[in-house]
Amino acid sequence: MNKTVTSVLMVGVGGQGIIRASDILSAVMMEAGFDVKKSEVHGMAQRGGCVSSYVRFGEKVYSPLARKGDVDLLVSFEKLETLRYLDCLKADGEVIVNDEEIYPPSVNLGEEPYPDDAISFIKKFFTDVTVIDATEIALSSGDRRMANTVILGVLSSHLDIDKKVWETVLEKSFPPKLLEGNKQAFERGRGV
């Protein structure tokens, strides 16, 4: 609906680096000259809760939240979590899904199954769906914890922002000893 503002929604499970990734995305958009507003909700404990973060950018942004049905890009770090937020997307919205499964307690307890058809379910409703194994790519770059940077790399190829802007922000975001690995992880994600 809103033509001047782009809304990205990043979701997943606590501990996956979602807040950090959305901080970097916000910094990139500000560096690119946009007005940016970001909002985040984290679960009750520090790890393992549902985490979601909206990043909205455009000429002028008023609200930190997007309405249901108004999100341009859903970036999900965990498969099941994607399903919680599908109704937030525009009909022609894009989805980036990390092919990782983190079981909620109820699945472990055997009270309900982990949905085995999540990806095909998403594809039923949306045409532009990118599935990646960010953890695998991060491992090949040296550390599984860089999966969030891989996902940022994938996201960067979906947004029309000069790669130099991303690089500038990445350089500011990581200490020197982690920078090379993260740059590599970003590149590999961008190449997906």
């Binding site: 499970v13 606590g14 679960g43 009750m44 404990a45 520090q46 790890r47 393992g48 809760g49 549902c50 099941l80 399903l83 919680r84 599908l86 109704d87 909620p104 307690p105 109820s106 699945v107 309900e112 982990y114």
Partner: peptide, 13 residues
């Protein structure tokens, strides 16, 4: 309102 996805998180670390 869209159906609720189950699997409430979180738990202790």
């Amino acid at each position: 309102d869209v159906k609720e996805v189950k699997g409430v998180r979180p738990s202790l670390c």
